[in-house]
Nucleic acid binder design. Structure first.
Lengths: 158, 158
DNA sequence: CCTAAAAATTTTAAGCTTGAAATAAATTCG
DNA sequence: CGAATTTATTTCAAGCTTAAAATTTTTAGG
């Protein structure tokens, strides 16, 4: 009885609060994202999707298959096809056949791609650091933990 | 001296932590965003940008000028032009001349647009609520506060 | 072996997004 | 007034993104 009286309105207030979280989350990440896009464009003549691909490949010296890449980045296969195409044009990436499977393609950074990414990554870290500079150590730790504990469809974000 | 010895490494660790925050933030918001996009598409045959435009217009019965809209949504003018075009096609929005300024255009929801948005907004709130359901009340409040306190380029996110 | 199903990838069509250039109208100020 | 600047918007070219269809190759089962 007290359950019924309480459940509905409380649940509703919670929903509104979670909606506010989502709106704020979206606003913040869009703000940071567009700042990063702008700076990548102005300072390095590149784009965020290209940067993301390079980042994924940077950690895997042996390269990745197209499908691994699209999974890692959580984007569609067709999407990766186009980005890789342009990165190959730019000479930052090479495609190689996968031995034993003629359907698949292994993609790997060139030396130029490796160097370009290393250079960008360092600066990029500085951008993010300064954009989140208003968080002190404690708040940063708290925020990191809170974000890491959210789980969607049973899977944690972390 | 102790200052110098401490400053550099600590600053660096902080930068790494803030970078982790950014990565987690991005991952979470992309996950939520793509879930919402998918559901808007499947259940309402619409898209997130359209939904965002309707949401902005819903609160302003008198409508908004194109430039107000693009500012509110933090996207380019040209972007809004295209989305409005399609919403007009769909009969959810109308454009009207602004009296006293023949350059400007006032955009307003039609009754159909109003109803469609109201219906979607309710369901949408439920989606978000369930996606963020793993946060209890306390954590939700904390997260909301932390997000609201971040400021970029001197401007708070809130 | 050989055919059906599955897997890896590319292609396609449509829409989103941006910055820059173009238009058109309003405002400023000499 | 009239030229120059500013403001509101659209157009354009390029790239990103997706879902669905198509292609090619591999794998499984009879």
């Amino acid at each position: 009885m007290s359950l019924e009286l309480k459940q509905a309105p409380v649940g509703d207030a919670d929903a509104k609060q979670r909606l506010r979280i989502w709106i704020r989350l979206l606003k913040l990440s869009r703000r940071i994202e567009s700042e990063i896009r702008e700076r990548l464009r102005v300072e390095f003549s590149t784009t965020l999707p290209r940067f993301d691909v390079l980042a994924a490949l940077y950690r895997k010296g042996e390269g990745m298959k197209m499908s691994e890449l699209s999974q890692a980045l959580m984007v569609s296969n067709g999407n990766v096809t186009g980005i890789i195409e342009r990165l190959v044009q730019d000479g930052q990436v090479v495609r190689m056949p996968v031995e034993g499977d003629r359907r698949a393609m292994q993609v790997r950074l060139t030396e130029a791609g490796r160097e370009a990414f290393a250079r960008m990554a360092e600066v990029h870290e500085g951008w993010v650091n300064s954009m989140l500079g208003s968080l002190d150590d404690e708040d940063a730790a708290r925020l990191l933990a809170l974000l890491g504990n959210v789980s969607i469809n049973g899977r944690k974000v972390k």
